[in-house]
Amino acid sequence: MTDDDFPAPDKGFVLTHTLIVNDVKASCEWYRKMLEGKIVMETDAAGVPCIIKVANSWIILNIGGGEPTDDKPETTVAVKKDHDILSAFLNIRVADIHDFYKSRKEMGAQFITEPKEHVSEIRCYMVDPDGYLIEVGESKR
Rank of each mutant, 00 (worst) to 15 (best):
D23L: 07
C50V: 04
V48S: 13
H118W: 10
D23S: 03
Y31L: 01
D99Q: 15
E106C: 04
V119E: 14
L19E: 02
Y132E: 02
D82V: 08
G131Q: 02
D71P: 05
A88T: 13
N22I: 03
I20G: 07
I63M: 11
G131P: 00
N62C: 08
S139Q: 08
E114C: 03
A95L: 13
K140Y: 05
A109H: 05
D44E: 06
Q110T: 12
D4S: 11
C50W: 06
E106P: 01
E114K: 08
P49H: 01
V136C: 12
F13K: 09
G12S: 06
R93Y: 12
S120C: 08
R32I: 04
E42V: 05
I63L: 14
E74R: 12
D23H: 07
G47C: 01
P73H: 03
H17S: 14
L35H: 00
R141Q: 13
G37Q: 05
Y31I: 03
K33N: 12
T43L: 03
L133Y: 15
A8H: 13
D70V: 07
N91P: 00
D44V: 07
C28A: 15
E29Q: 15
I60L: 13
E117D: 15
W30N: 00
K33C: 06
F89G: 10
L133I: 07
G65C: 03
L90S: 03
E36C: 07
E121A: 10
I112P: 00
R93T: 14
T75E: 10
P9C: 01
C28P: 02
D10E: 15
L133A: 09
A78G: 06
R93P: 00
D70A: 11
S57P: 00
E67C: 06
D96W: 05
K38A: 07
V94N: 06
L61N: 03
T75D: 07
I63S: 12
D5R: 04
K11F: 08
S87V: 14
A109Y: 04
T2V: 07
P129M: 00
G37F: 02
I63C: 09
V24K: 02
E67K: 14
D70Y: 15
K102W: 02
C28V: 07
K33T: 14
T113E: 01
A88L: 09
K140Q: 05
G64P: 07
E67N: 13
G47M: 06
